[in-house]
């Protein structure tokens, strides 16, 4: 079927774009370093808490961006991995007294395994809507299982009194020492950024990119689609699981709707889409805008979510490439 041709409105200009001060890499990196490392030392507990949540969501969005932005597989059930990581780690710590540090890895690991399991049917599908429905269904199953296994998870009553990360020497991670937790998640995020950069610049990255551009072309180029997708799903689910596990031991309270609700997926979507799909710093910037925005707009009550719905629609219509490509063209 022929598509209706578009008229040619935006003819590209080949005039070199003027570089603004904020587009300089040096300015950008020093500014982010100051904001991320030094500034938090001087802020109050509340702000520190928001910053920590921001980075948790940044990690989560980074992991989703890996499947959606870099490989074009739009999963709408990514919150399942976050929830799995959170619950596995919390339950291991509560029931078996396992150290949260191991929980972080095991939570991520179980999330990765479930990522592999769900990627099996996903691998056979090409059209985005099918993948969307399948992954949504999967996340719903996970949520229902967690809320139904009342004996284990206490259902909607939730888990409370989850242990914080055990101290390393004199460095404690309980609620009285929020700055340490903040630096911990910052380190996790930097590691995740590093891993993702490594992946997308390696041979796998090339394969992923060709999947996104055209599945048929990728196949004819001999890219092993199954393997690449499986790998991406696993890695992405692992990172989401780690984020969930961190969340559990940081907030220390879990309910199925707080970590497995569709609104987590909405957060991920809004963050990544606003920041910029398929960009490395997009999810981080998006997370700052969205999570901080949500927090500081708390006075708006339930209107916040209404506004976020509208923002998501407007961004998709008017700025589908996201803020990062619109403003920080060089930072890509």
């Amino acid at each position: 079927m022929e598509t209706v041709a578009k008229t040619n409105k935006g003819k590209r200009s080949f005039v070199a774009r003027k570089e603004y001060w904020y587009q300089s890499t040096k300015v950008l990196y020093s500014a982010s370093a100051i904001i991320l490392i030094i500034l938090p030392m001087f802020v109050g507990n509340y702000t520190l808490h928001i910053l920590t949540l921001t980075l948790i969501f940044a990690v989560l969005a980074l992991s989703w961006n890996l499947v959606a932005g870099y490989s074009g597989i739009f999963s709408f059930g990514h919150h399942a991995f976050f929830g799995i990581g959170a619950y596995v780690s919390a339950l291991l710590s509560i029931k078996y007294g396992l150290s949260p540090w191991f929980g972080l890895i095991i939570g991520g690991g179980i999330a990765a395994i479930s990522g592999i399991v769900i990627s099996l049917p996903v691998l056979g599908l090409r059209a985005a809507p099918y993948i969307a429905i399948l992954t949504l269904g999967f996340a719903e199953i996970v949520k229902l299982i967690v809320s139904n296994l009342v004996g284990l998870t206490r259902g909607e009553l939730g888990l409370s009194g989850i242990e914080p990360f055990t101290s390393i020497g004199s460095i404690s991670f309980n609620l009285a020492h929020r700055l340490n937790s903040y630096y911990l998640i910052l380190a996790v995020m930097c590691l995740v950024v590093f891993v993702i950069l490594k992946v997308i610049s390696g041979p796998r990255g090339l394969a992923l990119k060709s999947i996104r551009e055209s599945q048929d072309a990728a196949e004819s180029l001999g890219v092993n689609l199954r393997k690449s997708k499986l790998y991406v799903f696993m890695l992405s689910a692992f990172i989401a699981g780690v984020a969930g596990s961190f969340y559990a031991h940081y907030v220390q309270v879990l309910t199925p709707s707080s970590v497995l609700g569709v609104d987590i997926m909405m957060q991920i979507l809004v963050i990544t889409v606003i920041g910029g799909l398929g960009t490395i710093y997009g999810p981080i910037i998006g997370s700052f805008i969205v999570v901080m925005g949500l927090e500081y707009l708390r006075f708006l009550g339930d209107d916040r979510l209404m506004i976020y719905g509208v923002v998501l629609v407007l961004v998709i219509i008017f700025m589908p490439e996201g803020i990062i490509k619109k403003v920080f063209r060089k930072a890509k």
Partner: peptide
């Protein structure tokens, strides 16, 4: 009368 038609960016 003197039409220009494009397919996307191609005239």
């Amino acid at each position: 009368f003197e039409i220009d038609v494009f397919y996307g960016e191609v005239q």
